[in-house]
Amino acid sequence: MTDSITFWVLAPLAVVFAGVSKAGFGSGAAFASAALLAIILPPTQALGLMLPLLMLIDLVTLRPYWGLWSWPEARILIVGGVGGVIAGVVLFNVASDDALRFLIGSVSLGFVAWQLWPRKGSQKPMPLRAGVIAGAVAGFTSFVSHAGGPPAAVYLLSRGLSKTAFQATTVLVFWALNLAKSVPYAMIGVFQADTLRMGALLAPFALLGAYLGIKLHHAVSERAFFTVTYVFLTVTGMKLIFDALS
């Protein structure tokens, strides 16, 4: 696969995009990278390729945001997230590649629909304890598709955090959840020699994306970034669902 021109066109773009999203825009759209890779790789291989790269991005982005997170929200999301990861292990053991493609594609389109759904008036902040449920959903979707960002974002945005506190909290939460995912991923054989070699070759692109994300956090509006993301996720999600059903 590393000899494929398609791979070397799409994979570096996907990894840079993941770095930019995680380091600068709250991780919500980072899972688009796994969705894109699932078009050119079997879903399990795509997930195994991305996790070490996401963990590398987490490691790089922890320092710039160190101590800027909101610990009460972070802690409760992590607690719920671990339970969601356990539920993800159960589903992952029985799901086929096409079922995973369909799930990743559905989450992609669902994320776009949620973002574009009209909302009227101010929304009441979710109680702190609701973070357990949001964390569980985030942990589950993160395990099966690296798509934990949206449910975590729904909860954190309702808590009224500043842009930087929101970003720092997501960095901490997904550093912890990705670390938690790595153990069952290794146990059920998601990591393979080929994907680890691919990941080593793509690591510089992950670092580049993280660097750009930190810089762009203050320079680019979230509206512009997510507009591009919505188009990207819509096309990718439809393609994955079509492939799964056909």
Rank of each mutant, 00 (worst) to 15 (best):
G237E: 06
G26H: 01
W69D: 11
V94P: 03
V16S: 07
W117C: 00
A152L: 07
F102A: 15
M1I: 02
A180R: 03
S21H: 12
L100M: 02
A186Y: 14
I57N: 04
A113Q: 08
A95Q: 11
T229H: 09
S158R: 15
F242H: 12
W175F: 14
P72N: 09
I133E: 02
V107D: 06
I40A: 06
V190C: 06
Y230I: 01
F143M: 10
F174G: 10
I86Y: 01
S158K: 12
F205D: 02
A23K: 07
G131C: 03
S108G: 05
A152S: 15
M55H: 03
P12Q: 01
T6N: 04
H218K: 13
A136W: 13
G237Q: 05
W175E: 07
S221P: 06
P184I: 07
L53H: 11
I104M: 14
L201V: 07
V79W: 12
M126E: 12
G121N: 04
L216V: 03
A152K: 09
A136L: 13
G237N: 07
V137T: 08
L207D: 02
F7Y: 14
M50E: 08
Q115E: 06
V20G: 13
T44N: 04
V235W: 15
L103V: 12
N93D: 11
P64F: 01
S27W: 04
G209T: 04
S96K: 00
L77T: 05
A99D: 13
S108T: 05
S106D: 10
A180Q: 01
V107R: 02
L109D: 04
V231L: 13
E73L: 05
